[in-house]
Design a protein around this nucleic acid. Structure first.
Lengths: 267, 267
DNA sequence: CTAATAGTGTCTATTAGACAGTATGTT
DNA sequence: AACATACTGTCTAATAGACACTATTAG
């Protein structure tokens, strides 16, 4: 059939001719936690943490998943994760970036659902209001070799262990795919989503300043370094770290007890 | 309603309860072209090029767009761009990576369509068979300042000029958004898609070896450098370039006319 | 005072930038 | 030979890594 104008065409267009699917967005909400420390004088150890939600309904009832929800038809794609974050944390103005779109045919047993994952970073201290009752923060322990990854997520009530094989997808770009070989209690393909998110976070930390989104308004250099170290999974030398970071923060005269007092910094 | 098992739940599940949408994938197929050169002795100048398709139907009839198509319900997300690439180039085994998912509410006038864009790199010499009749290669001229971008796409028959403002989305990560201020003849939001793709390409060139995907089996160091230069939009010093690239290629004894002969390299 | 922690100065190794020089072809 | 192009050696500047040293508190 021929149309004389775009207007004509659109008038006659029937969207129902095509089979359609549902979309969701999932959000990796990362933060840092202080890990219990025997020595009160030392800068407390840090750990990355992620917010997970316990599913109350089928599918994957009683399993843990990343917060997410269905995209509304009249909603911009980026508005969807923002809306969910608002519901979950009662905060707006959170650092957020699109991570990756997962579109496996059977990733959801109900029907075909494609999901765009977003990654968000937050300073936990901003959470005045309680987070939703069936969600919990899990501390992340990432142990990666060239070929394998073991991810251990620990909350106050539960513990999830995920094992995956890293498969090199492309030599020139060094891109990896994660094949989950063992997974206790994560719903959907969210174990993979988390692994992809952590990889992105590690990479971005090296060439951007996104770490500051995880920090409170005031913090010490030692704390900042600890956060870098826990994300990168290696120790950094203090002088080198200071050289690089010095120009990005503002030193203040304030000090804090311990051994020698630390300088407090502002972003 | 309560279900006693996941199996029970899925049996009773009706996907039609939710409003659904369509998904497409769009592919930025990049390659390099030799630019006409007055001096036959010099290594020929290079230009990035991109494959565009002229739309034969509404919407955006007679405008240019990036190749793409609807995702089938039983098709893995990554299979969709692969299928389209196969149709378009008759090649498999092309370098391809997911770029970004665009989900503006009104990006398609027909209905709500979310599209995941992929970026593919190809050596044009591999294209033995003719590409589809309504598609053409456009040479890319990218002129970017801190705040503005002018993109000029030129084929043998047409010329497209796109102007955009760069808007800083986030200070810590340095992420930008492109607001198209002027656009001749690009359909949908594909002007933005191309800008995002070029940005990704520029970034990835700096820390990966994806450029090799644009090169033929054998090429000279001068050619390789020219490709880097045209992607990065700046000239590189030969000694520094050689130092970095030397270990990634294999030198051969073969030479080629001109002034002093160039060494031919293999990947 | 000593022990414990935080922070700095400086030497060295590595990498990046610049440029003058050398090599090998065409005409 | 003269010229045009391709390639290399080497000096210098900038950056990253290592480690010994200094500073400031608690007890």
């Amino acid at each position: 059939m021929e149309y004389s104008s775009e207007k004509e065409f659109l008038k006659a267009y029937n969207p129902d001719e095509y089979k359609r699917l549902s979309m969701t967005t999932d959000i990796l909400l990362f933060s840092v936690s202080d890990v219990a420390q025997e020595n009160y004088r030392k800068t407390s150890e840090k750990a990355m943490s992620i917010l997970l939600v316990k599913r109350k309904t089928y599918p994957y009832k009683d399993k843990w998943c990343v917060p997410g929800g269905f995209l509304k038809l009249d909603e911009e794609l980026e508005e969807c994760p923002k809306r969910i974050l608002k519901e979950e944390t009662n905060l707006t103005d959170i650092y957020m970036e699109q991570l990756y779109t997962f579109g496996g045919v059977h990733r959801d047993p109900r029907m075909r659902i494609v999901s765009t994952a977003y990654m968000a970073l937050i300073d936990k201290n901003k959470l005045k209001d309680k987070i939703s009752p069936n969600s919990e923060w899990f501390n992340i322990k990432y142990e990666g070799t060239k070929k394998n990854v073991v991810l251990t997520l620990t909350s106050s009530t539960d513990k999830i262990v995920i094992k995956a094989e890293k498969e090199l997808v492309d030599r020139t770009s060094g891109r990896y795919k994660y094949n989950i070989s063992s997974n206790s209690d994560m719903a959907f393909d969210h174990a993979e989503v988390i692994l992809v998110g952590l990889e992105r976070l590690r990479n971005k930390v090296e060439y951007t300043d996104i770490v500051f989104n995880l920090m409170p308004k005031a913090f010490t250099l030692g704390e900042l370094q600890k956060v870098y170290e826990v994300i990168l999974g290696k120790n950094l030398l203090m002088p080198a770290f200071r050289r690089i970071i010095a120009e990005k923060v503002e030193k203040t005269a304030k000090i804090q007890g311990g051994g020698r007092p630390q300088t407090i910094l502002f972003i």
